[in-house]
Simulated assay, not measured.
Amino acid sequence: MEDLNNDPKVSVIIPTYNRAERICRAVDSVLAQKFTDFECLVVDDGSTDDTAERLAGYDDPRLKILRQENRGVSAARNYGIAASSGDLIALLDSDDEWVPEKLLKQVTFMAEAGFEISQTDEIWIRKGKRVNQCKKHEKPEGMFFDRSLEMCMVSPSCVIFSRKFWEELGPFDEDMPACEDYDLWIRAGTKYPVGLLRERLTIKHGGRPDQLSNSVGCLDLYRIYAIVKLLQAGTLTADERNMALDELQRKTGFYIGGCRKRGRDEQAVRIERLVQGIIAGEDVLPSEIIEN
């Protein structure tokens, strides 16, 4: 499986921010891979704990440590990918880990099936205990734009995509502090089938307050923003546009209801007005959705 040129086959990108207690577990799981033709780029997004000191303890030429001022996960991933050189790009969150066969099996799977993007199944650990996934979280395969609109159906720590995929659909939106992966997957959902390797090769750890899903409020607002961007891009078919509009109205209803329960009536009215304008065909800038 080794490549004869100087560039690695796979570039592994790990963004991290103040996770000194967990980043080494993620890095160790990459360095323990049975597939060895990779580079691992850890992007320290301005950590203020002892992340830098812990990473400095590694002595492996495949590991590269990059640092930037704190700009968020999207900017960190973009920075890492821009500095990488592999034909394939694998994402790993700094609080997750891989089993040793993950890269070997997934790279082989993609080569044999001809996928530009694929993911594996995963094991969920919540507060140190393994938990079963709900049926709605079961991963689909192929083309599933409609399901991607409803919820994020691709897990970053499970995914590998080609350089071709990234050059067409990247980068991650740096204006999004969360749901940046949802944004990328719905943009990809009408263009590329997603391969699914039905083996639990990724271990996802959750249930902590430092996770973006817990620390960033109003996630539906960023999903609304992502759908608005997609609608305004003008690349959808009539059927796809109708799916996106239906989901936009559904998510807007949830978001507005939440605003009113919390006494944020002015925000509810503002978002409702903007979305009604989009549905009516008005030229609404996506940035208006998330402006302060």
Rank of each mutant, 00 (worst) to 15 (best):
D239T: 01
Q232T: 04
V228S: 12
A178D: 12
P171M: 12
L231Y: 12
A238F: 09
N214D: 08
N214F: 13
L201H: 06
E240G: 13
K204C: 15
D181N: 11
R260A: 06
L212H: 12
G217Q: 07
L236Q: 09
C259D: 14
T237C: 09
D183Q: 03
Y255L: 01
P209E: 09
D210S: 13
D183K: 05
L245A: 12
P209D: 14
D173I: 11
L169C: 09
G195A: 05
G234I: 00
V228C: 14
G170Q: 02
Y222A: 05
L221F: 06
D183F: 11
K204F: 06
H205M: 02
R250T: 04
D210A: 10
Q232N: 15
L219G: 10
C259T: 03
F254L: 07
L219Y: 04
M243N: 12
G257N: 06
I256S: 06
W166H: 03
G206A: 05
Q249H: 10
G195T: 03
C259Q: 13
E168M: 09
M243C: 09
A233H: 07
R260Q: 15
M176D: 00
V194A: 11
Q249W: 10
E199I: 00
T237Q: 11
A238G: 03
G253K: 05
M243Y: 15
N214M: 12
V216M: 14
L230T: 09
Q249M: 14
L231E: 11
F254C: 04
A238L: 12
I186C: 04
D239F: 12
G234K: 04
N214Q: 12
M243F: 15
L219F: 05
I186F: 06
D181L: 06
R260F: 12
D246C: 06
W185D: 01
T190W: 15
L221V: 05
K229V: 02
I256C: 10
Y255E: 03
P209A: 10
D181A: 07
T202P: 13
M243A: 13
G258R: 00
T202S: 15
I227Q: 08
Y255C: 00
R198L: 02
D220E: 11
D210K: 06
P171W: 14
I256G: 04
K204A: 09
C218A: 11
